[in-house]
Nucleic acid binder design. Structure first.
Lengths: 232, 232
DNA sequence: ATTGATGTAAATCTTTAGATTGAGAAAATC
DNA sequence: GATTTTCTCAATCTAAAGATTTACATCAAT
């Protein structure tokens, strides 16, 4: 079934020692898994990741000392290709969203069956992502919600459309923090020409200075970049 | 099986007339669906949504006149609870991501089986989201990638931490497009004091002017908002 | 008690930004 | 062919921004 012969190294992180044993037994039944460690501490978990380079880390989120989300982030920062499967007691939208944002490959609830856990591990080992339908819906609801306010503002007339292509170039350089001299040098035109363009941009965007122009640009999808209203 | 008795109104939008007929026949076999219209035009499709208020719109993305993504956005803007299922020929990550971002409830490929299409429609009618595993993986890859650069930059030293609380207030007002006079008025301090603060901010953020300061602030998670590197 | 950080403010000066007017050349549109 | 946009540039002017120095009061920490 699977395209790898070697056993997959798995690390368990859960603050509840009993739960830890339970999962360990469950997973031990699967011959393809090799549990390289279990711990109740996020910090120890991170060190175990550094030591054993497990393919998968099954991680509880509500850990005592260190936040599970932070642990995910730190594991991702190691760039060892370690895949984190979150095993949480909470189906909170924000938790799911943040876990996935920080690099988790899957998120399942503790109430789910052992078969589902094994399935999730297999999917993740195969390079896929795994979110059960119910959690997936929560994720997407949250995801789309975070873009809603933004598209509402873009429902108004976007003044950026009135800019000429040259003005767009100038504005692009403005959004990179250039002054007149810098823009003139980069576009190989005189400084006074840049001033003309910038003044025309101000008129069209109905702003008074470059800072406001830059802010308008960033908040209205300029340069194919969008400012998402997502809490860090 | 399903918890609604009334037939679900469905609208088909696809620029390929043959394909349109094919889908129509497929869906007609399902007794629970009522196809209220088919069209090859995005604009006509939007008008049909206004007229018939279908539960589900099955929409092709690469339409001639108007972009399918834009059509999704406009349908969402109507706020009729219409659920859009994207039926696309392309499994491009960016397309999937943008479609979901704009409010699509599902995304399936034209190469998929009719059973899968029906399943997708049912899931969406039940209020869930539907993304096949392969497309889901593409989505999450793209999603996580869009946050990666950001967390990388935050791994560097964040100069914003050196600011005093008063300087943060001043910077906050700078990021709202205020000039010296505006900031002075809002903080009930003199303009020269504001200049002092602003100059100190420049020193600490290692920038030369207010535009660069504002850009630094926005790109480094100032004000609990984060700029996601996501294409519009 | 002294030190250091912070917040406030003024004075002065240089530089940049922004507003306005006018104007020529090329390209697109009609 | 005439007209309109667009891009270019200059000159001039006012306003704002930014740099620098000095100074004083407060508060927290040593």
């Amino acid at each position: 079934m699977r395209e790898f012969k070697k056993k997959a190294r798995i690390l368990l992180v859960d603050d509840n020692a009993e739960h830890l044993r339970g999962i360990k037994e469950l997973i031990s039944l699967e011959t393809n898994y090799d549990i390289v460690g279990t711990t109740t501490s996020a910090n120890i978990g991170i060190n175990l990741v550094k030591k054993y380079h497990p393919e998968v880390v099954i991680m509880d989120i509500n850990l005592p000392e260190k936040d599970g989300l932070q642990a995910i982030q730190e594991i991702e920062k190691l760039e060892l290709g370690t895949k984190v499967l979150v095993l949480s007691g909470y189906d909170d939208s924000d938790l799911i969203f943040r876990a996935m944002k920080l690099g988790a490959r899957g998120y399942i609830l503790k109430t789910m069956s052992s078969a589902q856990l094994v399935y999730a591990i297999d999917e993740i080992l195969a390079g896929k992502f795994y979110l059960p339908a119910a959690l997936s819906s929560r994720f997407f609801d949250y995801f789309q919600q975070s873009f809603k306010a933004e598209s509402a503002s873009s429902s108004e007339e976007n003044l950026l459309t009135y800019l000429t292509s040259r003005e767009e170039e100038v504005l692009e350089l403005l959004t990179q923090g250039n002054n007149y001299k810098g823009i003139a040098g980069k576009l190989f035109i005189s400084e006074t020409t840049v001033k003309t363009h910038v003044n025309n941009i101000f008129q069209k965007l109905q702003v008074n200075d470059r800072t406001q122009a830059v802010l308008y640009a960033l908040n209205n999808g300029f340069g194919r970049k969008v400012r998402a209203k997502i809490s860090a």
